[in-house]
Design a protein around this nucleic acid. Structure first.
Lengths: 193, 193
DNA sequence: GTCTATATGCGGATAGAC
DNA sequence: GTCTATCCGCATATAGAC
């Protein structure tokens, strides 16, 4: 019998999500979150550097997974395709089973500018990490940045749809659809043809 | 004879840029900036909501200009092309003559995470404004978001090059080049073909 | 607890426009 | 004269460093 219940970070995230949903991000204190999770404020700050960070518990894991998938991909695969395939694998492996939580989380973030800023930072970090991996695969830096940015943009669009109430299609499906839309949009541009 | 010298905001920005360049963003106080501009700390905060904002004095003007250009564009022009044309006009009209300042500004921002976060926010706001204008022109919201995001991504890549020491090509030229690169990257993706 | 810096609220002064 | 824009002074809340 363990001395403490496991998954402290996950329980803190669940408690935080509930409280942010009920009373808003700003008017919720870290002490409240810890109490609802059956832990102390000190434990909260042991797991997260600040109050916002409790909503981004999966970010680093996602980033590692995506970069790993790209690294494992055959070098002959063109850059954007490599990134999109990686995002699809991660969509199935990490996102699909968490749709309900992701939707509530998305709503909380949409309601608070501070959290939106943090999310933009996470997306930028993901883009940079992907670009670095593409560069390591032999891409020139500019192409790497554009391919990474394009893929993350498609991911954002897909994620936005995926968390809309009533939407039932998988994130993988919506991601493919977003990439196809991008193809249409770009090929319609006279400068590119 | 005016009671005060004109262009208080511009003088504050110039003073701030010098000081941030000399001693860094964090170790420069608002009082110092105001003093170098011949003004007081209170006046600084009358013009800018916080210390970072002094480096983003042109953002709202750029956003208005871009959105205006898109609105003025013929409805038959496809969405991405409309945005790219608008960015090219703004590149010539607002950026090209400020290359030296923009380069120093870019270096200061690159050296500070807080400023990078603010810049990401400005880019996201620009993307949203562009997407809203495209939507008003009849685009569906998803296409609008993707087209706006794509254009802003190309703009970011072009801007990054434009502010590299030794680079002499115009921002308009680099922007066209980035859009062409995007075309290649996306068309090489099997999902889109 | 003190010191420094950021940021805000409120009032007040003056020049130019009407 | 009144109104508005612009700027200054003072007080203060807040947060972090020491």
């Amino acid at each position: 019998m363990p001395r403490w219940k496991p998954d402290a970070a996950e329980r803190l995230q669940a408690a935080a999500l509930e409280l942010f949903d009920e009373q808003g991000f700003e008017s919720t204190t870290v002490a409240e979150i810890a109490q609802r999770a059956g832990l102390t404020q000190r434990t909260f700050f042991n797991h997260f550097t600040d109050k916002r960070e409790v909503l981004f518990i999966l970010s680093s894991e996602i980033q590692r997974a995506v970069v790993g998938e790209i690294a494992a991909c055959d070098d002959a695969v063109p850059p954007l395709d490599a990134v999109v395939r990686a995002l699809e694998v991660v969509a199935d492996g990490l996102f699909e089973e968490r749709r309900a939580v992701a939707t509530r989380r998305h709503a909380v973030i949409a309601a608070n500018p501070e959290l939106q800023e943090r999310e933009l930072g996470k997306n930028a970090a993901l883009t940079d990490a992907i670009a670095a991996e593409l560069h390591a695969r032999g891409c020139d830096p500019d192409t790497a940045f554009l391919a990474a940015g394009t893929a993350v943009l498609a991911q954002q669009a897909a994620f936005q749809r995926w968390t809309r109430p009533g939407e039932t299609r998988t994130l993988r499906h919506l991601l493919s659809e977003a990439v196809r839309s991008l193809g249409t949009i770009v090929s319609e541009d006279p400068v590119t043809s």
